[in-house]
Design a protein around this nucleic acid. Structure first.
Lengths: 245, 245
DNA sequence: GCAAAAGTGTTTGATATACACCCATGC
DNA sequence: GCATGGGTGTATATCAAACACTTTTGC
C-alpha cells in the first residue's frame, strides 16, 4: 500500500512547538501499548509537494491546519532505518509487519517545525486516535527512532530563527501583551531579559500596533494589548530592518 | 544502473560560491553541445549518508574536496521532473535516454552550498570533463531545470547565515587582511560598509589573531594579516557571543 | 610631492544596561 | 496599607555612523 502511494525512502517529521506559562513544549504521540513516543510524521504522496506533505501529515496526525510551518533540516544517514521501532509501531496500530516491510528501509527525513498558540489550536490524536501529550523540551521521555535528535535540532533551529525574525508571535494569541511577548523570548532563548529595555526594543521594531484594550482578568496593573501588523512588518523588511533579539 | 545504486527520487545539488575581486560567483557546469548550464549535482548512493553524497558529488563533478559545505534547503514540488532537460544532458554525455529513464521521474533535491577560496581550490571539469565556469550570481546564464532558483535560494541562505556567523572566511585565504574581509562582506551583502567601524567591530568579536606580517606586493600602505582563531571562536560561542554584521 | 589605501582617533547620536519611580490592582 | 506587576523615565556605558588625521607606499 505504502509503496504504491508514497515516494520511497522519504519521510516527513514535524516538531510542533507550543508554550505553556513557563516552558516550551513539543507535541508527541504515544505509541499505543508502549511507553515510547514519536513525533507526528508520515510520507510524501507521489503527486504532492513536500510542503503539502508536511501539511497533510500535520492534519492527519494531529488535526491541526493553517499554522506556521518551517522546514529546518533534512537528515539521512545510511543507517537511518529502524525496523525494530517500525515493528512496535505496526503492532500498536494493528498493521501487519514483516521483515520486508517497506517502512523498514533506509529513510531520509525532511523535518519541519510548527509554531502554534496552544489555546487557539487544539490538537487531537489524529486519524489514528493516538494518545498525545505536550512535553517540556528540556525533559523528554523515551522516543523511538532518532526523533529525540530531530526534536533537539528543531529547537536549535527555532532559537536561531527567533534571533532574527519575529516568528515567536505564532506561539501567542492574536492579541498579546509585552510581558507575554517577553516571556516567550525568555522561555525559548532560555535567558532572562530586562523588562524596560525589552519593551523599548520591541516598539522600536515598529511592527506591532498597540490597542486601546488591556489584558483583563489578571491581578495587578493591566498590561496593554498589542497586535502584529503585517503591513508594518513588510515595510520594515523593505527598509532592510533586522529583528534580532 | 542508477536505479540499483541510488536512492530513487532523491538528488543532491551544490551551489559552489567563490569570490573574485568584485563579485560573488557560482561554479556552473556546461551541458556539452548546448548553451545551457547546470549546478554540480548527483544522487545519493544507497549506503551513504546525504552529507557523504554531497561530498562525493562535489568531488566527482568538480574535483573539490575538504571544503566548507552547508545544507540550506530541500525542494520538492510534485511537478519537479525535467525529462526534456534530462534528455539534453544524456545526449551531451552520450548516455542512452528513453521516456522511461529513471532520472526522468519526479525528484526531491537536497541542496547544499559550498564556500571556497578560489585561489586555493582549483575546480576541474570533474570525471565527466565538463566545461565549467565561474559566473556572477547577479548575471546568470540560461540554466536547466530549476537550478537558477536553487542558486538564488542558496544565495539568500548564504546572506542570512553570513549575518550571524563568520562563515565568510571560508571564501578567503587562511591569512587575510581587514580590507579583504570587509570587501567580502560588502560583495555578499551587496552594500558598502564603513571602514573604521568595520575594523573595530570585527576586532571586538575577538575571533581573529593579528599576525606580525603584512600583505606584501600591494600598492600603498601594507595592511596587517589576520588569521581566524578557532579556539577564540569557540570561547566566544560559549560565552553566548553573536557575530551579526 | 601627490594620490591612494590603511591604521587610528574624534565627535555625535543611538542603543544597551541597570535601576528608579509611579500607577493600578488584589488581598 | 501592602505586595506585585506594569508603564515609563533617567544615568551611564557601549556601540554605530560619519569623518578627520596620520602613515605608508607607488608613481
Amino acid at each position: 500500500m505504502g509503496e504504491e502511494n508514497y515516494l520511497p525512502h522519504v519521510s516527513i517529521d514535524c516538531v510542533i512547538f507550543g508554550l505553556t506559562d513557563n516552558s516550551l513544549n513539543a507535541l508527541l504521540l504515544k505509541v499505543t501499548g508502549t511507553e515510547s513516543w514519536v513525533l507526528p510524521g508520515g510520507y510524501v504522496e507521489k503527486d504532492e509537494s513536500i510542503e503539502d506533505a508536511a501539511l497533510h501529515v500535520l492534519k492527519s496526525r494531529t488535526g491541526l491546519t493553517d499554522i506556521y510551518l518551517k522546514q529546518f533540516m533534512t537528515t539521512g544517514n545510511s543507517e537511518r532505518s529502524f525496523p525494530d521501532d517500525v515493528r512496535r509501531i505496526c503492532e500498536s496500530l494493528g498493521i501487519e509487519w514483516t521483515e520486508g516491510h517497506w517502512a523498514n528501509k533506509r529513510f531520509i527525513s525532511i523535518c519541519y517545525y510548527a509554531l502554534i498558540d496552544v489555546n487557539k489550536f487544539k490538537p487531537t490524536g489524529g486519524e489514528l486516535e493516538q494518545e498525545y501529550q505536550w512535553v517540556d523540551i528540556h525533559n523528554l521521555p523515551q522516543m523511538l527512532m532518532d526523533h529525540d535528535n530531530i526534536l533537539r535540532k528543531g529547537y536549535e533551529a527555532l532559537k536561531e530563527n527567533l534571533g532574527n525574525h519575529p516568528i515567536g508571535i505564532n506561539l501567542l494569541p492574536d492579541k498579546f501583551t509585552m510581558p507575554e511577548l517577553q516571556k516567550m523570548y525568555e522561555i525559548i532563548l532560555d535567558k532572562t531579559l530586562e523588562r524596560s529595555h525589552f519593551q523599548k526594543k520591541m516598539l522600536r521594531f515598529d511592527i506591532f500596533r498597540r490597542l486601546e484594550e488591556r489584558r483583563e482578568g489578571v491581578p495587578h496593573k493591566r498590561p496593554f494589548l498589542y497586535r502584529f501588523d503585517e503591513n508594518k512588518y513588510q515595510n520594515e523588511l523593505k527598509k532592510g530592518a533586522r529583528f534580532d533579539v
